[in-house]
Structures are given as structure tokens and as C-alpha cells.
């Protein structure tokens, strides 16, 4: 499906993901963790569909269970002893819960990163970093053009070599190595020779003149501004919550949760809104379309 969160300005998307990954690293309070997990999971399903579901259940769920079991096997801190292992070490409630919390944190981060990968395409990344270091944006763009091209060339060359009976995948180690080096040598000559033409094409289009600018197809519009404001406000509330210890949590020696107050409720609400922001934006868009279609 079309992801309308991905249509936002790259600066917004990038800072959102930085913010979310930082929050999920810093906060271990179960309520906050649950919120982040739900947010990350629902957005990843929205972006990648059934593939995300499959990924979550085949890889992430087993990982969660393994980490929850592994931690108490090695970590014996905590006061609530459940039973003793054969080695004589105690298994404590605190270490089990800590293992679960760490696993949830880990999984949430993986989910956020997978969303980041799907949303922050190379051109967005190039655009953002080109703003900081202009020369870098062209270099990155050229790397993205030439690395796949070279790989393709190497394939074509080794294919051509196989057609004259020189195969890198067959024969003894010596002839294989020789063929491999030959292919590399051909590749180098090819790259240098053809690079000359690329250089000509760049020079001919004025590359190297002083005062180069960087063009991008992204525009920071009013909607981006409003959303940036909302995101900033929500992130600020969450930040204040983290600083003031409202969402903190202690595992060892005994479990101690920060008490639930009106302020902490507000922080959770802000965090929930923040985590669900991409989903909310998508839902709102979908709802708008429904309304427009019904009017047509």
C-alpha cells in the first residue's frame, strides 16, 4: 500500500526514527515498552504487509523467548528466588523479567530499523547528508550508481570468460585463482577506460565550475511544519518524562516501578501518540479517501 508517512519531508522522517530508536533504548518501563512495541509492530505491518508478520513470528518471537530464558541462566541477581539450577545457581524472578524487557527492547529496535530501511530510501538519505556536506551527496549518488554497475560488469566478464572455457567455479585451486585475478584485472582496465567517458560527460556538463548547488525533489511544506510541531511537542513531553524519572524502572535487586500519577499518564499518552503517529497519519489519510470516494 501507499505509505503517507513516507511522503513526508526526509528531515521529518529521519528525526522521527532517531527519536523513536533513542526512546526505545532508554526506557524499560513495561507500559512504555508495550506502547513502543505496538507502535513499531503495527507500522512495520503497515509498511511491509504480510512479510513483516512472517518476519515477526518466524524470527522475532523465538528470539524473544530465547532471550527471556537465556538471561536467568547467566544472571543470578535479584531477591525473589524461584528455584535453583543443578549448578546451584538461583533463578530469580527479576532476572527473568529483565530478560523479557531487554528482549522486547531489542525487538522494538529491530522493528523500527526495518521501518527505517523501508521508508528512508537512498535518495532521502543523500538529500539529508548533502545538506550537511554538499560534496558528499554527489559522491553517495555516484557510489550508488557505480557499485551495482561494477558488480554487473564483473558478472558479464566472468560470463564471457566461461564462454571461452575459463570458469572460476570449476577446476583446481590454482586455475581458479588465476581466472579470478584475470577477471579482476579486466575489470580494472574496463573501469578506468570507461571512467574516462564518464569524466568527459561530467566535465562537459560543467562539473568543477565554482558555485555548485544541490537540487532535490523534496519540499518542506506547511503540513511538514505542523507535523514537526506536533512531533516536537510529544517528544518534549516524553523527554521531560524520562528526565523526571516518571517512566523509569528498577530491576535489581528488587523490582520497583515508578508510581502511576496524572503526570505519568500524560507522558504515556504523549508517547503512545508519538509511537502511533505513522499509523495515525495513514489511518487519517485512508479515512479521508473513503470520504472523498463516497462523495464522488
Amino acid at each position: 500500500m501507499r505509505d503517507s508517512f513516507a511522503g513526508l519531508h526526509p528531515a521529518l522522517t529521519f528525526s522521527y526514527f532517531v527519536c523513536m530508536i533513542a526512546c526505545s533504548m532508554l526506557v524499560m518501563h513495561p507500559i512504555a515498552q508495550a506502547i513502543a512495541l505496538v507502535g513499531a509492530f503495527s507500522y512495520s505491518v503497515l509498511v511491509k504487509g504480510a512479510k513483516a508478520l512472517k518476519f515477526s513470528f518466524i524470527y522475532l518471537l523465538p528470539m524473544l523467548l530465547i532471550m527471556a530464558v537465556m538471561n536467568p541462566a547467566f544472571n543470578h541477581q535479584g531477591v525473589t528466588i524461584l528455584f535453583y539450577l543443578k549448578s546451584g545457581n538461583p533463578v530469580t524472578l527479576e532476572s527473568i523479567l529483565y530478560g523479557v524487557a531487554a528482549a522486547v527492547m531489542f525487538i522494538t529496535m529491530i522493528l523500527w530499523f526495518s521501518c527505517y530501511n523501508a521508508v528512508m530510501t537512498s535518495d532521502k538519505f543523500i538529500y539529508l547528508f548533502g545538506k550537511v556536506i554538499p560534496a558528499l551527496s554527489l559522491v553517495l549518488s555516484m557510489v550508488l550508481r557505480f557499485v551495482p554497475r561494477y558488480i554487473e560488469q564483473i558478472k558479464a566478464i566472468s560470463h564471457a570468460q566461461r564462454c571461452i572455457g575459463r570458469d572460476m567455479t570449476q577446476g583446481n585451486l590454482w586455475s581458479r585463482a588465476k581466472n579470478g585475478i584475470n577477471i579482476l584485472s579486466m575489470m580494472t582496465t574496463w573501469a578506468l577506460e570507461n571512467g574516462m567517458e564518464t569524466a568527459d560527460s561530467m566535465k562537459s556538463r560543467g562539473y568543477g565550475l565554482p558555485g555548485r548547488t544541490t537540487f532535490s525533489i523534496f519540499r518542506f511544506d506547511g503540513r511538514d511544519g505542523i507535523l514537526l510541531g506536533i512531533m516536537g511537542l510529544l517528544a518534549a513531553i516524553m523527554g521531560a518524562g524520562i528526565m523526571s524519572g516518571t517512566v523509569s524502572m528498577r530491576f535489581f535487586p528488587s523490582i520497583k516501578l515508578a508510581p502511576v500519577t496524572v503526570w505519568s499518564m500524560a507522558v504515556y499518552a504523549a508517547y503512545a501518540l508519538l509511537c502511533m503517529l505513522p499509523v495515525i497519519i495513514n489511518l487519517q489519510e485512508a479515512w479521508k479517501w473513503k470520504r472523498i470516494e463516497s462523495k464522488m
Partner: peptide, 19 residues
Amino acid sequence: QLVTDKVWHELAFGLESLG
């Protein structure tokens, strides 16, 4: 002759150089 990875960037390349 193609320098960049995206079509739109390639179209803009010369104009970027001209500033």
C-alpha cells in the same frame, strides 16, 4: 555518460554544476 543513480538527479546534474 550517466553519473548519478536517479533519473531526476541526472536531469538536474548540469544545472547543479552551473549553480
